[in-house]
Amino acid sequence: MKWTNQAELIKQLTDRQLVNQVYLTQLIILILTIGGSFFLFDSLEEVADLFRWNTQQVIFYGISAGVVVLIIDIILMVLLPARFYDDGGINKRVFRSISVLEIFVIALLVAFAEELLFRGVIHTHFGYIIASVLFALMHVRYLTKPVLFVSVLFISFYFGWMYEITHLLWVTIIAHFMVDFVLGVMIRFNVMR
C-alpha cells in the first residue's frame, strides 16, 4: 500500500473509527505477545519475573525517563516548526475526540501492550538493539517525518536502556504511559499546537 493510499484511507475514517483502530492495533500486539511468549519463555515464572516491582527503581528510572522525554519533546515542539511534528493529524484526531479518562485508558493500554512486546519479549530474547529498532519501525507513519522518527528512535533506545539497567518492565511501562498520557492530554486541550 502506498503512503498516499494509507493517508487517504485514514482521512475516510471518523475520529471514533480511528480511536477504535488504536484499540484493535493494541489487541493485535497483545495477541502476538502472548503467542510469542508461549514459544520463547520456558515457564510462567519467567514471564512473571518481568513484572517484578521495585518502587525505588520505578520512581528513579521510570518516572525520570518519562519526565526527560516529555521535557525534550515539549522543547522541540516549541522550537521547531509545527510541520516537523505533524503526523498527518492522526494524534490530534484521536486525542481531541475523547475524554481524559479514555486518554488514560489508551495510554495505559498502549504502554502495557507495546512495552510487553518490545521490552518483555523481543528485548529479553533478541536484544536491546533489535527491540529498539523494531519499536521505532512499528511507528511506520513517522518514517517520512525525520524529526518524529528520530524522536521515537531516541525514546525507544532510551526506554530500552532503562530496561537494560533494571530488567523491570514496570519502569518502561510507566515511562511510556507518562509520555503518551501527558502528550495526549496536551493535544486534547490544545496546549501545544
Rank of each mutant, 00 (worst) to 15 (best):
S132Y: 03
G160P: 05
Y128E: 05
L117W: 09
L108M: 15
K145C: 04
I165K: 12
I173N: 02
L148C: 09
L109C: 09
I106E: 12
I174S: 02
T172K: 04
I155V: 15
A113G: 10
M178T: 01
H176D: 08
F118A: 01
I122P: 06
M178I: 12
T166E: 04
V171Q: 00
I173F: 01
T144K: 14
G160V: 04
A111R: 08
A113D: 05
K145A: 13
V133K: 10
R119L: 07
E115T: 12
V179A: 07
L108K: 01
L109E: 09
I129S: 10
G120M: 08
F118Q: 01
F104N: 05
W161Q: 01
R119K: 11
F135L: 13
M138F: 15
V121T: 10
F126A: 14
L116F: 15
T166C: 05
V147A: 13
A111N: 07
F118Y: 15
L169E: 01
E114H: 02
G127L: 10
Y128I: 13
L143R: 15
A131G: 11
L109W: 11
F157W: 04
W161G: 03
V105Y: 06
V121R: 06
T172A: 03
H125F: 15
F126P: 03
G120D: 07
L143D: 07
T166A: 06
F177I: 10
M162A: 15
L169V: 05
T144R: 14
Y163P: 01
L108H: 01
I165M: 12
A131W: 08
T124I: 02
F104R: 01
L134E: 06
L109A: 14
Y128K: 07
Y158A: 07
V121N: 04
E114V: 13
